[in-house]
Amino acid sequence: MSIYSNIISNIKYLTPLCTSLIFTIIAIMPIMPKGYDSITPLLGIISMSFWIVHRPDIMGWALVAVIGVFTDILYGSFFGTALFASFTIRLILIKIIYKLELVNIFHSLFYITLSITIWLMIFLLINILFNTHSTNYYNYIFQCITSIIVSPMVIFFQLYLLKKITS
């Protein structure tokens, strides 16, 4: 088997990484109405959590690290924070998914809500550590809410991709 055919046969395993990276880029695009930019849904995190829950074998530590580093660079956050947040999300989700059987879309929604909450909590803590003066908590809360509202769209799109990969 040549290297080329090996890449072609395994390319489907890169789908989780590619979709997560594309969603991360879309999240910094002008997708929200003017004035509501600071509560744009965290599409990249939704996508990453989905794949951690449904295909933890593909979305391993290495891919999570790549997404974390890329997110840090694109968002301009303190380097390493997104990486740490991504690792924490994976650790917690992996611990839970074996106790709570994944049955339907509501379970996916629960896991994604949990991931977004963890993500924003970590960033809020880092922000409080570095900026001692007041922080606007409402932006964090509303960004969490908009992310949860938008997540079913991302879930359905990725369920389609998951079917294609698994079949």
Binding site: I28, M29, M32, S38, I39, T40, G76, L120, L124
Partner: peptide, 13 residues
Amino acid sequence: ISRSNLSYTKSVI
């Protein structure tokens, strides 16, 4: 070429 779309940082590329 990007927007400042986050609650925890305000920057654009």
